[in-house]
Amino acid sequence: MTLHKHPGLGDPLVRVRALTKTYREGERERAVLRGVDFTIREGELVVLLGRSGSGKSTLLNLISGIDLPTGGDVFFEETNLTRLSEQERTLFRREYIGFVFQSFNLIPTLTVAENILLPLELNGRMSPEEQEQALSFLDDVDLRDRADSFPDRLSGGEQQRVAIARALAHDPLLILADEPTGNLDFKTGRQVMNLLQRLIHEARRTMLIATHDRDILDLADRVLTLQDGTLETHTPDEVATSF
């Protein structure tokens, strides 16, 4: 289950095929995803646009292996995530995926620095060089002076910046961001998105951002829109003019 850590730019990284997900609600079944197909290429910043409850978070959970689909496949290169065991999916996730959540989801009992080092430690990569490299992201998010603070001492914007640093710390193949500006005011949200984009481009990482915030569109290479369980692909310009 080893992937190329740095595949060629523009090569397909994630291939999603005929993905379906249904939930039972009492006696009824509700389909959230109805046969979704798409590909994310290495180095792309893809925005997943959709209203609240359209299934964006579900799709992110399926791509990261947190949840399993009702049908279809999720390929990372040749590895089909849906065929892996729970344990394998967890180990896959912690090595190849970085997360940025709407509600930050920092570990309240760890300091800022420790939060950033956690993915590294989970992967058993705690050499001084690797630690220093991970902590250098604190400089990038301009929070070096808060390294020893606990999350509850930080503002929302600061917490999300720490979450971004954490998502990048272990050099993942794919970063998944679920409404990263959802809990922030406009100005802070903008700052966070700019930071995210800069870091992603600098580090030549791939990112899928789920959002309903149309202001993010100008940062995207490509836009996927999710509506009634089906997915459509657009350029950012198309979305800006047609929606």
Partner: peptide, 15 residues
């Protein structure tokens, strides 16, 4: 529960 969820999402195994 939420904290465990966060850890699990970050790749901490069940074990």
């Amino acid at each position: 529960r939420t904290l465990v969820g966060r850890l699990r999402a970050l790749g901490v195994t069940r074990r």
